[in-house]
Design a protein around this nucleic acid. Sequence first.
DNA 1: ACGCTGACCGTGACGACGTCACCAAACCAT
DNA 2: ATGGTTTGGTGACGTCGTCACGGTCAGCGT
Lengths: 210, 210
Amino acid sequence: MEQQPLELFPFLANTPYTEMTLSKGAWMFREHEGCGRIGFVIGGSVKIFKEHSSGRSITLYRLGPGDSCILSMSCAMANPIHQASAVVEEDCRVLTVTTDQFRSLMERSSEARDYVFGLFASRLTDVLLLLEEVVFRRMDERLASILLEHAVRRGSDEIHTTHEQLAEEAGTAREVVTRVLREFVSNGLVIVGRGVVTINDRKGLARIGR
Amino acid sequence: MEQQPLELFPFLANTPYTEMTLSKGAWMFREHEGCGRIGFVIGGSVKIFKEHSSGRSITLYRLGPGDSCILSMSCAMANPIHQASAVVEEDCRVLTVTTDQFRSLMERSSEARDYVFGLFASRLTDVLLLLEEVVFRRMDERLASILLEHAVRRGSDEIHTTHEQLAEEAGTAREVVTRVLREFVSNGLVIVGRGVVTINDRKGLARIGR
DNA sequence: ACGCTGACCGTGACGACGTCACCAAACCAT
DNA sequence: ATGGTTTGGTGACGTCGTCACGGTCAGCGT
């Protein structure tokens, strides 16, 4: 799994960077914070999300190896404030560069620019898709999709998570997750236990989640 | 109001472009379409929105003079499909360039790149803010904000729009707009007529809309 | 002036979702 | 074992989305 630092980001070759390890639960940045360094993920995963004073949250997307943080870049290039928070989900190795180094890299390297444009475009696409889901789709459909995504990411139909965490991911309340899961159970789509949801009928879930 | 073509986009000076006029109601592009030319708005306004098979829609943001279409650029640089639709709200003058010309411009001009980065960042910010509103805030709060925005944009407390149009903007149903407006009326915040909503108490609305 | 038509608005009923308050069961540390 | 914490279950109620109406008004043709 572990890669040489520059395999994923060859355009960083002539830029001074710092390699570091972040362990699960560490904050990469918080919403409304200014920008320190720009991170390029080599291994592990990072969850990008928004939270609200009511205590609810919603997950926007995740960073994996080869990703880097468009929100920090956005801070560096234009809007000086982070628009969401980032926390490490699985222990992470990241390269970081300063905002100045990043800006100069953007001037020098057309490869780096292509990478960043592509990243901007795909994050914008992600967020627009999420917005569409939130506005137009029902909770059972969204939760079905989320469960399937988890199964794919972890390569297992046993998803180790709590109703609370699923609610934070979907942007809803725990009680709603409980209700929807109860419905899924009674249709034989999943089996639930304390801290674990096991998918029992992938195709059935996929029919709901589209 | 009308500007010389290149005042707003000086970096287009050495790029062949086509100037054109689009009248109210014209489509700039539709969701799921590929990308033709990239538009730079000189005058008028364009509404960017998502629609759903159920008939509901939601407005993402608007383009005015000096703006240009990040979604088309995103198409040109990476993801080949538009992620939303665009329709002219007020008669528009736009400059357009081909995707090839745009790509070459990105290589040549650091001013153009700065402009596009800034645009990407601010649209991403807009969309994240909208997502936050949709997920966490109530309809009366959002509608209050929308009414105030309209008043500011048009410079008048008399907003000429229908419940249907407000619903499309907010991503909800007409009936919901009717209900919320009835509430506003009974609190003396607005006065409603056929095809018009008049703001009667800006501060009251602002308290609700934050 | 009259009636037609389409756009616009109002409303009640009901299901889906968010919130609150509270309780029950499972797990954990000592 | 016991007390505290984490997780899950539940009923009640308010908000929102959907459906099926029905009513009102503006504009238009005759």
